[in-house]
Design a protein around this nucleic acid. Structure first.
Lengths: 222, 222
DNA sequence: GCATGTCTTGACACTCAGTGCCACCAACGG
DNA sequence: CCGTTGGTGGCACTGAGTGTCAAGACATGC
């Protein structure tokens, strides 16, 4: 019996178990709060063993953060797919939209995502892990931006800063995400955030290789 | 017996113990790496009990991160002290310079600080905690920027994003910090980073209360 | 001198996160 | 029928972090 397309039965089983664990975890964490729920509570709710939990998730934080982080595995791919002559602000806006679109695709799924986002932003331990995930995206974006503009990310801070500003915009949107906001509202928030950072994203080097800093080493030591 | 100025003997003793613990911890962590050192190792080196360690530091991460984070307790104060008519990019540059100046004040202290910074940036767990600390600074800067420009931080993303960009610049400097760099070199790196983000910092509302967004999503009142 | 208060410390026990190890039980292929 | 493979549960262990308590240091009042 040939496995359906590219997923084997075993893989689908794994997926199923992971989803069950994740659902039980999110349910408990969202209602009781992060610290008030132990891994034993989660596995008891999911009807599995403690050991199995850690085979699917690296840590208790991992369950929550991956729920959002998995949606952004292809931010870099999206950026790479944008036309090369597009201004960085526009290309980055499209890249950042990927995870947001993943959050908001179905209305019921959107509300669930929003609750998880709030849980992350309000729980220090989760927030820290979330930021750590962002660092990976940021590194990918940095490399892609450097390649795009022919810059050396080790000597020129622009790619690193531009990627950082894109993540800032994403953060601002998630922070402002209110109950009941639909996809269009999220798009508005995204546009609004990018309007602020765009001057820094598009100014330095639209196509010119040599960037000009009009205030290099202002010699303003103290 | 009047205590010396505003510090009592007990307080100075506490300070001494904390410093001893911190020195032992940094010594071990910097040489062996974060995960290879247990709290028991640290307290054994400092000649104290495990329990005492946790009376002075909330966690193993805390020892390392506080070493840098304590230097930035007054970034917000510095921003508040800058003249009101100064452009945000300049005022923020001075605010961010505070912790950097604290790192680089004495040459021997600078090298030690640089090693700790590298340890933080290279250790995921520490990096995450460091970013979490940054969020507190960022919240303070956001409030101060909002007050400064007469903006509502809940509806206008500018203060939040501007504060974030300042932290990005700080991050970029720390990332590029090389062995042997002196204070002037750090100042150059800071200027360089701020030159990139300045267009976004100064464009939106240098003094005018009404900000103009020329992009879709303008005039969104709610 | 002696009792009394506070403050700090060390020691013990405990919870919980996370890991290594091994035995068990399916599904598959000779 | 048997060996292999892969997922699972049970168990023990390390390590972080916390609560509690008794003991010592020190200042104060009788």
């Amino acid at each position: 019996m040939a496995p359906r397309s590219d997923t084997t039965l075993a893989e689908r089983k794994r997926q199923l178990v992971a989803e069950e664990l994740r659902n039980a975890a999110l349910m408990l964490l969202a209602t009781r709060g992060f610290d008030a729920v132990t891994v034993d509570d989660i596995v008891a709710a999911a009807g599995m063993s403690r050991r199995t939990f850690f085979r699917y998730f690296a840590s208790k934080e991992d369950v929550v953060v991956r729920f959002i982080a998995d949606m952004g595995t292809d931010v870099v791919a999206e950026l790479a797919a944008r036309p090369k002559d597009e201004p960085p602000s526009v290309a980055l806006r499209h890249a950042i939209w990927r995870p947001l679109a993943g959050c908001a695709d179905q209305p019921d799924h959107a509300e669930r995502s929003r609750i998880v986002v709030r849980l992350i932003l309000d729980t220090p331990a989760l927030h820290a892990r979330w930021l750590e995930r962002q660092i990976h995206w940021r590194a990918g974006l940095t490399a892609e931006l450097a390649a795009r503009n022919g810059l050396d990310p080790d000597t020129d801070p622009y790619p690193h800063l531009a990627a950082g500003m894109a993540m800032l915009a994403l953060d601002a949107v998630l922070q402002q995400w209110q109950p009941g906001d639909d996809e269009q509202r999220l798009a508005e928030l995204t546009d609004h955030a990018f309007a602020v950072v765009a001057p820094a994203l598009d100014r330095p080097s639209v196509g010119a290789p040599g960037r000009v800093i009009d205030s290099p080493g202002r010699r303003q030591v103290r």
